[in-house]
Amino acid sequence: MSLTSDPPAAPSLTKEPGTAVTTPPAPAELVVVPVRHPWRWVAVAATAVLLTQFVHGLVTNPGWEWDVFAAFFTTETILRAVWVTLQLTFHGTALGFAIGIVLAFMRLSASPFLRSVAFGYIWAFRSIPLIVQLLFWFNLAYLYKELSIGIPFGPSFLSFDTTGLVGEMSAAVLGLALHQAAYAAEIVRGGVLAVDEGQLEAAASLGIPRLRQVRRIVLPQAMRSILPNAANEIISLFKGTSIVSVMAIGELFYQVQVVYGRNGRVVPLLMVATAWYVLLTTALSVVQHYVERHYAKGSAR
């Protein structure tokens, strides 16, 4: 019953004019009258008025003190604080996702023990508020300065025995990263699960080595669903670094508070912080766009 390879000739179907039941007039004679949307215009007008009022307020209300904003936006104190914020974000993200990837594969592993440990970790760190955790680590930093060795989370954190500031920075990064790892793990796991099982079977049937399967076949495809969520996480971590201000670390939000504590110009300085957060979040979004485009290779969407 194998089918013959020549399909029924189709050309008669493609030239359809003349076969229609009633001949419609030529297109040129017809005028299209679009549907009118009067309420849409009312809504646009109302929104425009509100928006104009808001902008007008921003510009004319002296309370915003734009001169103070301009004076502080790029002062060295603020720039250094921005740099600290970026560092916290970068290290928190890098370490957080590194741990997260390990946790994700632990949760996907065949070993019930590894699965449970990863599950327990994610459960715990998603349950504890970040600020509580940070204070905990902050206090532990002092502990470690005395203990200096024998930390349960790996050798790379042995640098705790250094002076106060390094210890605080490390504690902050650690707190952010451990918190981030729990979310990153679920994002990575979700991405890996979203890859069609057939892909792994195909790779296995070709005898492609295991690590190579993960690196070359699974992760690049998982990236498509990981990236939007990961970008969300990075952006929220970036803004979340402001929480670290409770530990008196000189990141952007803390530094702004310090400055307005001294000069009393609360609103313009909050605007300085806001502007920086918006600016850098925008930059991250642009990067996200290009990275996503890279991983969209070969896909229709």
Binding site: Q199, A202, Q221, Y295, K297, S299
Partner: peptide
């Protein structure tokens, strides 16, 4: 697993749904 993978290189498998690597 490593040895099973090696054995599979001697056996070609063609799936109903192709399972080409889309990326």
């Amino acid at each position: 697993e490593r040895d099973v993978l090696k054995q599979r290189t001697r056996i070609g498998f063609v799936f109903q749904n192709f399972h080409l690597f889309p990326h």
